[in-house]
Structures are given as structure tokens and as C-alpha cells.
């Protein structure tokens, strides 16, 4: 699971073009949006693309995306349960 979280962080860094950021800088339990990493609604749409391309998970409603993307822990768990690839 720790390895998977690291992979996920690298994918987020690439998808959101966070040039120069290291996976260690993203806290597993800290909120990704608002306080914490500081992502916004456009990042949420970019992460929906990431979920579909990398894990075959389709999220139609951006509001649902925001719930899934609450933190790295939350996201990793959701992917493990729902992944299609």
C-alpha cells in the first residue's frame, strides 16, 4: 500500500504538472484541496482524467470526485476497491 501511494503521488504530480515537487512533500492524510496541497476545481477535473486513464474508473459528477480526492489515503483506498485496470 505504501508503494502504491507513492506511485499515486507521482501520477498526481505528473497529471497536475507540479514540476519539481517530490512525493514526500504530499502528506498521506492531509486534504488535497483547500488547505493542505491547495488544489482547486480544475485539478479535480484533471484527477478525474487520471482516474479514467490509469485505473479505468469513470467519475461523471465532479462533486463525487471531490469526495474521492479528499486525501491520498482516501484516494488510494477508493482506487484499490474500484479499479478496472
Amino acid at each position: 500500500m505504501e508503494d502504491f501511494k507513492r506511485t499515486l503521488k507521482l501520477q498526481i504530480i505528473e497529471a497536475l504538472n507540479l514540476q519539481g515537487m517530490q512525493p514526500e512533500e504530499i502528506d498521506d492524510s492531509a486534504p488535497l484541496f483547500g488547505e493542505g496541497l491547495g488544489l482547486d476545481s480544475i485539478d479535480s477535473l484533471e484527477m478525474i482524467v487520471l482516474m479514467e486513464r490509469n485505473y479505468g474508473i469513470k467519475i461523471e459528477d465532479p462533486r463525487e470526485g471531490r469526495r474521492v480526492f479528499e486525501s491520498i489515503n482516501m484516494m488510494a483506498e477508493y482506487i484499490q476497491t474500484n479499479r478496472k485496470k
Binding site: N17, I42, L45, E46, I48, V49, E52, R53, K58
Partner: peptide, 10 residues
Amino acid sequence: EGTLNPTPFI
């Protein structure tokens, strides 16, 4: 025309 990154569009 699938799920696309919005950033270049914006």
C-alpha cells in the same frame, strides 16, 4: 473525444 484534460481548453 473521451475524457479530456480541461487545462489546455481553458
